[in-house]
């Protein structure tokens, strides 16, 4: 059997298969996957935030002062100041947002 006949044999059985929902079923089956770009962006902004926090004068002092004030108030069974509470919940919200973004981003 020559090359041409062989090629003819195989191509005669070369069937085009209709999709018929196959692609849709595959897409529905795809697991969640973190995109590389979102991870890079998130990591970059976290680093930027940390760097800004330490190089900007007063920022670190403000946050640390409020956290310190919060802890002191709790230790002395006193009501912390509004700004301490605000900073505390702000930090919680920020950490929660970061955690959610890292875990769930899928653009």
């Amino acid at each position: 059997m020559n090359e041409q006949s062989l090629k003819k044999l195989f191509t005669s059985y070369k069937v085009d298969i209709r999709d018929d929902g196959f692609s849709e079923r595959v897409i529905h089956r795809l697991p969640e996957r973190r995109s590389i770009l979102s991870q890079i962006i998130m990591s970059g902004f976290i680093m930027l935030g940390l760097i800004l926090m330490f190089i900007m004068p007063g920022f670190a002092a403000l946050v640390l002062e409020q956290i310190s004030s919060l802890i002191t108030s709790i230790n002395h069974s006193q009501m912390p100041s509004a700004s301490s509470i605000a900073v505390y919940f702000g930090m919680l919200a920020l950490l929660g947002t970061i955690g959610y973004s890292v875990a769930r981003v899928d653009i």
Partner: peptide, 26 residues
């Protein structure tokens, strides 16, 4: 698909290659 996790883009790839891959496996 790789950088953005774009499922629509991946869906187009699946549509383009589902026939030869299924035929090969068949």
């Amino acid at each position: 698909a790789a950088l953005l996790g774009d499922r629509k883009a991946f869906s187009r790839l699946v549509e383009a290659y589902q026939s030869p891959i299924r035929r090969f496996l068949f």
